Simulated scan of single mutants.
Amino acid sequence: MAFDLDNLGVFLAAVDTGSFSAAARALGRVPSAVSMAIANLEAELGLQLFDRSGREPRPTAHAQALLPQARLLVEGVQSLNIHALSLHQGLESVLRLVLVPELMAAAPWHEALRLLSIDYPGLEVRVLSAPQADALAMVQDGRSDLALVFERYGMDPSEKFQEVAQETLVAVLAPHHPLLARMPASGIRDEHLLAERQIVVAGRHADQVDKRIAMSRLQWTTEHPMAALRLVETGLGWAWLPSGFVREPLALGQLVQIPSENFSNSLRLWVDVVWSAGRPLGPAARRFVELLTQGREEVA
Rank of each mutant, 00 (worst) to 15 (best):
W240A: 03
V77F: 07
S144K: 08
R189P: 04
F263Y: 12
E191N: 07
A171W: 00
S266P: 03
W270I: 07
Q64G: 06
V273P: 06
S21Q: 13
E124V: 12
L72N: 08
V274M: 05
H177Q: 01
F263W: 13
V274N: 04
A285T: 08
I38D: 01
L241T: 03
T234L: 14
F20C: 03
L27T: 05
N7C: 10
L231F: 11
T234P: 02
Q140K: 10
Q162Y: 06
L67K: 06
R152D: 06
A37N: 09
L180Y: 05
P68T: 00
N40W: 07
D272Y: 15
I118E: 14
G235E: 06
H62D: 15
H83V: 05
W220R: 10
P242T: 13
L85G: 07
E159V: 10
V10W: 03
N7G: 08
V271R: 01
V164A: 00
L45N: 00
G142A: 09
P68R: 01
D145P: 09
Q48H: 08
P108V: 06
H110V: 11
L193T: 07
A202N: 00
E159P: 04
L169S: 00
A33N: 06
T293R: 09
A24S: 07
D145F: 08
N81A: 12
L115E: 15
G187N: 01
E223G: 13
L8P: 04
Q208I: 11
A181N: 08
I118R: 15
L123I: 15
M104R: 15
P242R: 10
F245E: 15
M138A: 14
R52P: 00
Q89M: 03
A112F: 05
A39N: 11
A181R: 15
V94E: 15
V170K: 02
R52A: 01
T222H: 02
Q69I: 08
A22P: 09
R212D: 11
Q78H: 12
A147M: 06
A84E: 14
L267T: 10
L5S: 13
V100A: 02
A22C: 06
V271D: 00
I188T: 03
L241M: 05
G235R: 04
M155D: 13
V15A: 07
R52I: 00
L169A: 07
L236S: 14
S216P: 10
Q208W: 13
R114T: 11
D134K: 10
E223Y: 07
V200M: 01
E92W: 04
L229S: 11
E196L: 02
G282L: 03
R114N: 14
M183S: 12
L8G: 00
S93G: 10
V139M: 05
L80Q: 10
L250C: 03
G244V: 02
P184Y: 00
L148P: 06
Q140E: 15
R217K: 13
I82N: 11
Y120S: 03
L179E: 04
L229R: 11
V149D: 00
V201G: 00
